[in-house]
Amino acid sequence: MKKFLIKILIILTIIAAIVLIVNEIYIRNVSWHTDDIYAYESMPSELQICNFGSSHGVYGYNYENYEEKYNCFNFGLVSQSLSYDYRLFQNYENHIGKGAVVFITISYFSLFGKDETLEDDFESKNKRYYSILPPSLIKKYDFTTDLYTYKLPILGIDPEVMWGKMVRSVLRIEEPQEVVDEDIVSTENVDLHEDAKKACGRHVDNAGKHDENGNFIVNQEEVQALYDLIHMCKNKGAIPILIITPYLREYTDEVKKVDGFYEQFYELLSEIAEKESVEYYDYAFDERFNARYEWFMNSDHLNETGAKEFVDILMKEIVFKKGYL
């Protein structure tokens, strides 16, 4: 038995050592995160301006013109819920300076609908947080996912992709060029009406289920997370500001078609803002944006230029005007 156990120990040690070495080489040489996750590694301390939010947060704010003067950070991640905004704040609260301006982006889908953990792609979205949050703050934490996505990312790569890279590097064949999606930078090739219809379906129709009276079902967990986030900002001495980012007319027109949505959404948002005495700004119908196609990548997301313009407006109309900085 002793011999058996020793041999098992030896072979496991060899395998573990090889896996750790290859993992280390991989981490050092390959971009295994998306850029927005990498950004968390270089988050400035004593943040003065930051924002949270889903894709509307990710693409809505570009602080490039202000980064020299102020410590800024975009906490937004695609499809991020308010409850994850709150968890990120909890984890990174030491980075947020006193008196910091915190833009909390409210997307239409963020207050209504089903429990996020019941969504089909919950797991793939949830994986992102293993690299930036501790286990206690991750929904449905699972050790194996942690192992494959954060601790040993080499094991998380799709074996087909890994094999393809290996074969190409051995045979010295170049990787096929990824097709650049031009829609990312402009609306030029986008059928905006079709895009708005799809986005509205995703954000409003499907995300917010109706109850028997035809009302959208309020997602209490997300609403509570918004309250908690506001409280935490205030306790930290930061200034929470609720923001609805600009959209193109095609998108808002489509949302208008959804019976009773706007009424219910604004009623709920006003109630929260009033109750917590926080400012909220709605740029969804702002005429400076809703027909500026060159500032959008699709019907509801700003592009880089648009995001810089939007931050400019926020700074001038809110931050400087009110003397927050």
């Binding site: 072979i11 395998i15 090889i18 896996v19 996912t145 494959y148 094991l155 998380g156 074996p159």
Partner: peptide, 19 residues
């Protein structure tokens, strides 16, 4: 034989459908 065992285990570790 140890080379065979180690390669087999590494193939399982790296090329299995994980998660």
């Amino acid at each position: 034989r140890w080379t065979i065992y180690v390669i087999l285990l590494l193939v399982i570790v790296f090329f299995s459908q994980k998660g």
